[in-house]
């Protein structure tokens, strides 16, 4: 299983994407022939159900040492690798301010 226990605080955005992508791949039985693209809506494509959102939330908070605030808690924010990476980037920027 993908290691979610080590915060990758200093990881650049590409590494954040790689980490999220890896976590999703580890938690999907089969991606089909097309694989997982960063802009794929993981819920609409049927890779995961909305129940997986909570797991993604736990992964993001522990792997990137951020706290996802209430206003970010909607499925849209968690619907693709791209959107989750953007969210992590925003949260880190807020923390640095």
């Amino acid at each position: 299983m993908h290691d979610s226990g080590t915060p990758v605080d200093a990881a650049p955005d590409m590494d954040v994407r790689e980490s999220i992508r890896g976590y999703i791949k580890d938690n999907i039985a089969s991606l089909g022939e097309d694989g997982l693209r960063d802009d794929d809506n993981i819920f609409e494509k049927g890779f995961v159900t909305s129940m997986f959102a909570m797991q993604l939330l736990a992964h993001i908070e522990s792997a990137f040492d951020v706290e996802v605030p209430d206003e970010h808690l909607n499925l849209h924010r968690f619907s693709s690798v791209e959107r989750m990476a953007e969210m992590v980037s925003e949260l880190r920027a807020v923390r640095r301010e």
């Binding site: 909570m54 209430d70 970010h72 808690l73 909607n74 499925l75």
Partner: peptide, 17 residues
Amino acid sequence: VSGIGAGFAFVANTALF
């Protein structure tokens, strides 16, 4: 509680967990 649309995916699932 939380945002609009957080009801099941985040609030109910957290509660049920």
